[in-house]
């Protein structure tokens, strides 16, 4: 847990790994319970018959965002103490493309593949095996990719900083966009032929 409870000393740092395991188990449980252990459900996003992935992840993102911003407003959370992952723009684009291709071909992302593996799916076993081979090859070939990997560091940049708009306005626009997307996804689902799986 990066923050804010451990840096503020509310919880000792030794509990870090315990929380990591508990949160990981909770995350895996929710993925499985939401049906994300089925590659056909995930791949439905690309074929237009099931947008549950899009809906679940966007709902999680906007709920978390609203919670954080209201907690920060009420003074319950020190928003400035949250760790902002630095943006490496080049590797983010290249990694996004590679991840997207793997996602659409395999029907899993890393987290969901482990959730599916946990219930004994053979396609998930193949996927995670391939993932480890990929990790190994990337590690061995790292000197070739190193320059690209570290290029385009924009630091802990936020969309609100780069656009120069307030956090509240950005949150509102994102929620409106997400709700519009949910409505559009449901409309597409109705138009596309149902797939039984």
């Amino acid at each position: 847990m990066v923050g804010p409870l451990i840096p503020m000393g509310v919880i000792p740092e030794a509990w870090d790994n315990v929380f990591a395991v508990m949160l990981g188990m909770g995350f895996g449980f929710v993925l499985e319970a939401s049906g994300f252990s089925s590659s056909r459900k995930i791949i439905g996003t690309f074929f237009g018959y099931d947008f549950v992935v899009l809906k679940v992840f966007f709902t999680a993102a906007i709920t978390c965002m609203l919670g954080l911003l209201y907690f920060s407003y009420l003074g319950w959370i020190d928003y400035s103490m949250l760790y902002i992952q630095p943006t490496f723009i080049t590797s983010a684009i290249v990694g996004g493309v590679v991840m997207g291709i793997g996602f659409s071909m395999g029907g899993y992302c890393p987290g969901t593949s482990f959730a599916a593996l946990a219930i004994g799916k053979l396609d998930a076993l193949t996927f995670t095996g391939g993932m480890f081979i990929g990790v190994f090859l990337f590690s061995e070939a790292f000197p070739i990719f190193e320059k690209m990997y570290n290029s385009g560091n924009l630091g802990g940049m936020l969309v609100t900083d780069s656009l120069g708009i307030s956090t509240g306005l950005f949150a509102f626009l994102l929620v409106v966009a997400a709700v519009g997307m949910f409505w559009g996804a449901t409309w597409v689902e109705r138009k596309v032929k149902k797939v039984e799986y």
């Binding site: 509240g168 949150a171 509102f172 709700v179």
Partner: peptide
């Protein structure tokens, strides 16, 4: 769209709009 989802969507938009009109946060 299911009525429940419509209500939830409206609640989300109202909550997000609240952030736009609130004065500068205490924090």
């Amino acid at each position: 769209m299911d009525r429940r989802y419509t209500i939830l969507a409206i609640l989300l938009i109202v909550a997000a709009f609240g952030l736009v009109i609130l004065p500068g946060g205490k924090n």
